[in-house]
Design a binder for these strands. Structure first.
Lengths: 108, 108
DNA sequence: TTTATTTGCTACCATATGGTTGCGAATATA
DNA sequence: TATATTCGCAACCATATGGTAGCAAATAAA
């Protein structure tokens, strides 16, 4: 089993979703991020690592600090899939519409 | 650690995403679903179970067959979160806009 | 230079995940 | 009735996950 590293894996965890929302506002250091949670720095650091592997976060070294930036474009994949889903769903309802129209015309 | 059963967990797995797309078109039995994949019936069955626990699928018994239906409304949660994300992002760009405007007026 | 801060890394742990095989119950078909 | 099909359930396995604690390197501050 290979470990999946994609956007869907990234947003599966509520803490990671919160980190994404945080960094949507502004870039932050790991410690600054961790301060927003009850989890330990190391736990948050692991989430950051996962998000980085998913290419949702990018590092920027500034002295001893590392600023994590959001790669917002990666989120498009979610939207893309959701769009695909909605289209299939719409298609189904269109077909349902056809059936209902058929029933209606049969009545006449 | 409690097992999370939400939409985000549901779509984290590519097989489950495919099952969702399949059922977006029409309800199916577990065997019919499994035929679309290389995985075994039992493996697919487990994914179906997870999706059901996430309340994305609903069962409908028909004789010895069970038809699985999609509860499409559950997917709204993803869209809702994505919307929240996009708003935060837009807000950031607005602020950036303000900064740029500020710089511009400073020049004068 | 000494000390404190920031950070990634490794080792470790309990539980979750995704998969397998096999079984048994219920329903449909011969 | 005997047989086949559909399906959930339980046991089991290897690996992933989310968390912990502790260490070492690099940089900044005293």
């Amino acid at each position: 089993m290979e470990t999946r590293r994609d956007v869907f894996q990234a947003i599966a965890d509520p803490t990671r979703r919160a980190i994404i929302l945080l960094l949507a506002v502004s870039a932050m250091t790991p410690n600054a991020i961790a301060e927003h949670f009850n989890s330990s720095r190391q736990a948050i650091s692991k989430h950051i690592q996962v998000l980085t592997e998913c290419e949702i976060l990018k590092q920027e070294q500034k002295g001893r600090e590392i600023h994590y930036h959001l790669n917002a474009s990666k989120m498009n994949e979610i939207e893309k899939w959701l769009e695909q889903f909605k289209q299939l769903l719409a298609k189904r309802f269109d077909q349902l519409d056809d059936v209902l129209k058929q029933l209606k015309s049969d009545k006449k």
